[in-house]
Design a protein around this nucleic acid. Structure first.
Lengths: 104, 104
DNA sequence: TAAATATATGAAATTAAATTCATATGAAGA
DNA sequence: TCTTCATATGAATTTAATTTCATATATTTA
């Protein structure tokens, strides 16, 4: 049995990424760091939504921020998040194709 | 840029595991297959809740069912879900200890 | 075949998360 | 220092997911 602490961790982890906006932001950042305005443009989301969600992503160690003058550059955590996304690709491609094609 | 299809896949994947009940069920199944009643006992969840969530887990390829007489045995997908959980362990231990200790 | 056991399911009720709106903060340039 | 640009944030609203309750179905056993 895993510890209840680690158990809570899973909840936090999945909860953070079970959201369209954050998922899109994370994917946009796969191409490299961007400041908030750039993320707004890339995602077509409004600024407030982007900020709220960046905060959540940062809080969970999925992105890092660096201030450069008046800009804040957000970077994806490539050490853990990137390989994870790839593993999930593999799972979904194998088991969830039907779902994605809409044929239940 | 990832395809929108794969993008939808992420949403499905994380959404499925961003839930206390399903997470607990998945963890219980790490120790080996169990039928619904056994899962109810292991998790202390009521039967209806367990069934609803097993259905979701199965639908996303995270568990498999096998009927044995009047019982239905559920097995964790060890090929993809188990290694995934381990990768996530690593991420959370490194980046989310503070969160889990309650010190924001 | 009637009763008991195991599991599933629809729909209502509950609970929680996400988005928007209005506004605040903070740095930089005129 | 006033204005503008970049970003953050609280609170209200909206939207969505989860749980519960009542009941259905399916298999086995008496």
């Amino acid at each position: 049995m895993i510890s209840s602490k680690l158990f809570g961790a899973y909840k936090l982890f999945f909860g953070t990424l079970a959201n369209d906006s954050r998922l899109k932001i994370v994917n946009v950042l796969r191409d490299g760091p961007q400041c908030v305005n750039e993320i707004c443009e890339s995602t077509r989301f409004e600024q407030s939504l982007v900020s709220h969600n960046l905060k959540i992503l940062e809080y969970h160690g999925m992105v890092f921020v660096e201030r450069k003058g008046k800009y804040r550059y957000y970077t994806l955590n490539k050490k853990t998040i990137q390989p994870l996304l790839e593993l999930i690709d593999a799972h979904m491609k194998q088991y969830c194709c039907k779902i994605l094609e809409g044929q239940r």
